[in-house]
Design a protein around this nucleic acid. Structure first.
Length: 426
RNA sequence: GUGGGCGUAGCUCAGUUGGUUAGAGCGUCGGGUUGUGGCCCCGGAGGCCGAGGGUUCAAGUCCCUCCGCUCACCCCA
């Protein structure tokens, strides 16, 4: 077989690239409207950044990272998520001294060695936002606002469900965890194999179990709600109030858990119908304390990520038709040379002008003009060259007129201006 | 890592109980006015039928192995 792209890595072909551009442009508008600035960090980081940031015992770090030694024997990793790298950059450049609160976004590829399936690739792309330096619940709400706004630009809001939860803090979370582990151990015999394993590795995950019997048992399990400290409770309350004020519908899900160790307090997932098993299109949460894990100062933070591929899955397809202002059909070498002059001239004026790279018959050039979605077609042959004129054809009305070559720019600009208001600066 | 489904032109797919030169639609290119697009008509190019092995006089069709894609578990955006 011929060479193929690596498993889980996909080529983004022109039609899809167009959709992604729309997503990115939309996201940038929303980010800007909330006052975020762009940051771009390297795709490659020292493995340590993720091992310490995300947590040694998470699935991501234990078995999903693209990690390798470079030629100097240094352990490097293709970023599996954005937050750890951004925080590393913030700490390294002491950005936190520039402003009390940093509002940053980034857009780019992430890498995780998982088994590909619907909505899950090994190279995937995220729209990422981070509020660093604020412990205000309003920052949490703004993050959720961003996720919700961006996703609902492209997806039917009927299909969206926002789930919110608080994981508590280092004060109250351990109490719940301890009791939960105790409970799970006492009911060990009634749990499925996976839950037995989970109760050791990541006890909160048992709540995700789809097994009926496990769910029966879990009905009586200790719930975080009863352990949450007053500070965390009030924080959560203020986040929810802010969401109400923003007019964003949500449900509370006390069992919502995150896969990364660094999350504290607020956590959320925006789920969508129609995505299959990977139903989360955006997610995020608060990560106070992550900075210290990376040797930084105490810096509270909250962030979110939108999965671009999953958003793509939610978008109605329907490629927009091609459009261009003019197609120049030239016949003969002399006419071609003349065409190049006009091509350069009109393109520099900002018009979209196309022509045939190959020496083709007029008929086939006309077909090409049609496919290019040309509004007008300029026909220049030997006859026209001799008279220093050309035929300008309106592709919509099929009307043609003979124009003097020197008048061509004015005539075209006039016509196109009338058509649409494309050419302000002219 | 584990399981299910599927691999036939660029794309979507037909291919009868194994039987001779493997088909269609769309797309692509050309022709129907030796200088005029869309619709229509005609024609061309394009397939080691995922790869390797086996059964058979005969394999796209049956069997085995591998590879790939896909969905799900797991996990997550």
């Amino acid at each position: 077989m011929t060479l193929k792209a690596v498993r889980g890595f996909k080529d983004i072909l022109p039609d899809e690239a167009k959709k992604r551009q729309r997503i990115e442009e939309g996201a940038r508008r929303v980010f800007a409207s909330c006052g975020l600035e762009e940051i771009r960090t390297p795709i490659l980081e020292k493995t340590e950044v993720f091992a310490r940031g995300i947590g040694e015992h998470t699935d991501i770090v234990e078995k999903e990272m693209y990690t390798f030694e470079d030629r100097n024997g240094e352990l490097l990793t293709l970023r599996p998520e954005a937050t750890a790298g951004i925080l590393r950059a913030v700490i390294e450049h002491k950005l936190y001294n520039k402003a009390p609160v940093l509002k940053l976004f980034t857009i780019g590829p992430m890498f995780r060695h998982e088994r590909p399936q619907k909505g899950r690739l090994r190279q995937f792309h995220q729209l990422n936002a981070e509020f660093i330096g604020s412990s205000s619940p309003l920052a949490d709400a703004d993050c959720i606002f961003l996720a919700y706004e961006i996703v609902s630009m492209f997806a039917d809001s009927e299909d969206l469900i926002l789930e919110v939860n608080s994981l508590g803090c280092p004060e109250c979370r351990p109490l719940h965890r301890k009791d939960l582990v105790l409970f799970l151990n006492n009911n060990r015999d009634d749990l499925c194999k996976d839950c037995k394993r989970r109760s050791k590795t990541n006890p909160l995950r048992v709540f995700d179990c789809k097994n009926e019997e496990c769910q029966q048992v879990l009905k009586f399990a200790p719930v975080m709600k009863h352990y949450i400290c007053p500070e965390c409770a009030s924080h959560m309350g203020r986040v929810l109030d802010a969401l109400e004020a923003y007019g964003i519908p949500f449900v509370q899900n006390p069992y919502l858990v995150r896969g990364l160790d660094y999350y504290k307090r607020t956590t959320f997932e925006l789920k969508a119908r129609g995505l299959g098993a990977q139903s989360t299109v955006a997610a995020g949460g608060r990560y106070d304390g992550l900075s210290q894990l990376l040797d930084g100062p105490e810096l509270p933070g909250v962030g979110m990520a939108v999965g671009v591929e999953r958003l793509l899955l939610l978008m109605k397809d329907g490629a927009e038709p091609k459009r261009s202002d003019l197609f120049i059909a030239a016949l003969g070498d002399e006419a071609r040379t003349e065409a190049l002059y006009w091509l350069g001239y009109l393109r520099r004026k900002g018009l979209k002008v196309e022509y045939s790279l190959e020496d083709k018959s007029l008929k086939s050039q006309m077909k090409q003009a049609d496919k290019a979605g040309a509004r007008y077609c300029l026909i220049v042959g030997e006859k026209e060259m001799d008279e220093e004129e050309a035929i300008l054809r309106d592709m919509k009305t099929r009307e043609q007129e003979t124009v003097d070559l020197d008048d061509l720019p004015e005539i075209l600009v006039e016509k196109l201006k009338r058509d649409r208001k494309i050419l302000e600066g002219d």
